[in-house]
Design a protein around this nucleic acid. Structure first.
Lengths: 231, 231
DNA sequence: TAGATTGTTAATCGATTAACAATC
DNA sequence: TAGATTGTTAATCGATTAACAATC
């Protein structure tokens, strides 16, 4: 059987294939620039203008957006509000995910205080303390529980995401507990490698140490290395 | 601190070309795995074994390392300690960079408390407060100054890097001051886009909000998207 | 209609993988 | 020497850019 035909059959209906990781990683940046355009009251933009603003090619913008659907209009460009709404949806801003933060130390508390979660539609419903120091207190209006209550809380509430900001040596064990509890995602700040398949849970890493070293390295060699980043 | 490295590349006809951003971004992960091997007392490893551990191809490892030089030996593999030393050097661990943190709020304080800087050979020599609240105190042994003293401090000390962890609306102004002061690098946590050329200063961004959205998106679509990451 | 700009296909470029000769 | 494993070249793959027909 002709391979082209076979593939078309396998991709049910006329569904698009999964966008590549590279495309996914560029979306938040579109999101940010569209926010900015909305704030400035701009309601319409062409791929060329946006490309100029963002220092990328217009071709890339059109290709990226067309992974998800035709959001523009020939001869007109893109409606900023409509495009923003579409990208927000793709990025799960309206998915209403509930998250907990594990670790009520400096880092955990710093994260709660950032407006980031609220802006991205993620609801922080609890902090879990691993040192029995902050337990019972609250932090920016979010209650702090003992890590011992993790299972009970997750079973009683629909928790989707755990932010890992606890001591390094506890990370693997706590991550495993989150997987058992059926959580959907781990946002890992501790630089510990977590090896799960995407079927078990989605892991997104914030490797602070790695980023610092890349900065060091780029300074030493004067290397422009922005490609891998979202900027 | 070796300002002449880049020039060497340009002058000597035989030098290797600049490694691609993709290669640079993979180095910290090699660094971490080599740390682990050293901790386990393993002194020798083949690209095949390492590839297996790291879930990458042996080909990629050999290609990556050969961007910088022949660190292995045919028939033997790689000496773990030697390779670790080489990669540490490339990553500027021994460059002795001095850094300041701008913003003595939750985030700034959380960063000082992480052992990350020390482990990577970066010396945090001061925090700068933008709210006149923490001024005069100290944080994990690091003195806190008013942001008004930024210029004076940087002129009297050899500061290389500024970590931007201050309120969003101050970021652009403070970044510009850092550029004027001749700093070499900015490590930007605030999600604000900074547009400088690499000649002015090297900017490395930690876009927390972007990462959160990518996690959201991957959960929604069940997409394995690890490629862009360092894991 | 004419001009503008998209959506999409084709061409190019770069990065990853495979293969193998060099060599320890 | 024989076996192992690198360093490096060649082949493949995917992602970016360019071009252009479709169409608003």
């Amino acid at each position: 059987m002709n391979n082209d035909v076979k593939n078309e059959v396998e991709i049910k209906g006329n569904e698009r294939p999964d966008p590549s990781p590279a495309v996914i990683r560029r979306l938040p940046r579109y999101y940010r620039y569209l926010c900015e355009l909305i704030a400035r009251g701009i309601t319409r933009i062409s791929s060329n203008e946006l490309a100029h603003m963002m220092h990328v090619t217009a071709s890339q913008i059109r290709q990226d957006l067309n992974c998800f659907g035709g959001f523009g209009q020939q001869g007109y460009g893109y409606n900023v509000n409509y495009l923003f709404a579409k990208i927000s949806d793709i990025l799960g801003v309206s998915a209403g995910f509930k998250a907990i933060i594990i670790g009520a130390g400096d880092l955990g508390r710093a994260l709660v205080h950032l407006s980031m979660f609220e802006k991205r539609g993620v609801d922080i419903c609890a902090l879990f303390d691993t040192s029995n120091e902050a337990e019972g207190k609250d932090c920016a209006g979010v209650p702090v529980y003992s890590i011992d209550e993790l299972e009970k809380f997750c079973e009683e509430n629909q928790v989707d995401i755990a932010v890992l900001a606890c001591p390094k040596h506890l990370v693997k064990d706590i991550a495993a507990r989150c997987v058992s509890l059926g959580l959907k995602g781990l946002w890992n700040y501790m630089g510990v490698e977590l090896e799960y398949s995407d079927k078990d849970i989605i892991v997104e890493n914030m490797h602070l140490g790695d980023s610092l070293m890349i900065l060091n390295c780029r300074i030493c060699r004067n290397i422009s290395c922005d490609d891998g980043e979202s900027e």
